[in-house]
């Protein structure tokens, strides 16, 4: 049961937005962030801090609470709402210690058989000297490998900006969903335009070329479903947006409830193993 079955709902606006408009929605300064969802969909949420090695990165929040009656771990990138909190959250761009914290706590959840929910919302992993010195690449890479062997259900939802490796490092799940107005991309449209045309102002064209909207990602088989948003977008009604997300999460968790630990790992492996479109042989017949 995938949410796209009811995803193309009455909530969908009649006029389809362009990719660039979707990018603006995904980055909307009033859009709900991870903690806005957490406080609406979980009860008894308790945040858990620190990577036990270097620091606690405020750009990623992790914690446990109950989704309905089910205890779960939730973790996601967190952006700030005003200047002070934006700086505190480093604009939602995590450093290596953020990814290491998330992994530590995901492994803790796995140890006690708690399902894991991740909410992806970042422009990307932080590009700074300190992040490089502490091994940003290694931190991301390790999360990809280790998430693939978590013996519990993992549901990942892109709630806003799915910024490349910085999003994917929380994105290796049995189910990967996207909110209707979120985007998920290998590179930001601005950077893509800067590379192709040496002109950041052609980001609109790049956004269209990158096929980064939820609908396009679903059509490419890269995500499993679309979570509808309130009319006018998630920022128009946080409560309704959270209710729609909660419903989708509960459906997905229910669909995985019958699987054993090894079946969950296999299911996740198979999901990513299939991704990739290429021609084989001189006949150039598509792989899938």
């Amino acid at each position: 049961m995938h949410p796209q079955a009811h995803g193309q709902s009455q909530l969908e606006p009649t006029v389809e937005k362009t990719a660039w408009e979707k990018v603006q929605f995904a980055r909307h300064p009033k859009r709900p962030y991870t903690l806005d969802y957490v406080e609406r969909i979980l009860t008894g949420f308790q945040e858990i801090h620190g990577d036990r090695q270097f620091a606690d990165d405020p750009a990623i929040v992790c914690g446990m609470g109950r989704l309905g009656s089910q205890p779960v771990l939730i973790c996601g990138q967190q952006k700030g709402r005003d200047t002070k909190s934006r700086l505190h959250r480093n604009f939602g761009m995590p450093k290596p210690e953020g990814y290491r914290k998330a992994l530590r706590i995901m492994q803790l959840a796995a140890k006690f058989q708690l399902p894991i929910i991740t909410l992806m919302d970042t422009a990307g992993a932080y590009h700074g000297m300190d992040a490089e010195e502490r091994g940003q690449g290694e931190a991301l890479a390790r999360n990809l490998r280790e998430m693939s062997r978590l013996p519990v259900p993992v549901i990942c939802v892109c709630i806003g900006e799915g910024g490349s490796g910085g999003a994917l490092a929380l994105g290796v799940g049995n189910r990967v969903l996207m909110l209707e107005n979120s985007v998920y991309s290998v590179i930001s449209p601005e950077s893509c335009a800067a590379i192709i045309w040496r002109d950041k102002n052609r980001a609109e064209l790049a956004a269209a070329a990158l096929k980064l909207t939820a609908k396009e990602m679903l059509a490419l088989g890269l995500v499993d479903g679309i979570v509808p948003e309130p009319p006018g977008g998630a920022h128009e009604d946080f409560d309704l947006a959270a209710t729609l997300l909660k419903t989708a999460l509960q459906e997905q968790l229910a669909s995985l409830s019958g699987l054993s630990s090894s079946e969950l790992v296999q299911d996740r492996y198979d999901k990513f193993r299939r991704i990739g479109s290429f021609f084989t042989g001189d006949t150039f017949s598509p792989n899938k």
Partner: peptide, 21 residues
């Protein structure tokens, strides 16, 4: 990752890392 293959390239990172697991 190869920009021209968009998120298909991105997902290769997860695919290879899972195989390395």
């Amino acid at each position: 990752a190869r920009m021209q293959e968009g998120a298909v390239s991105l997902m290769q990172m997860a695919k290879i890392s899972a195989a390395l697991m």
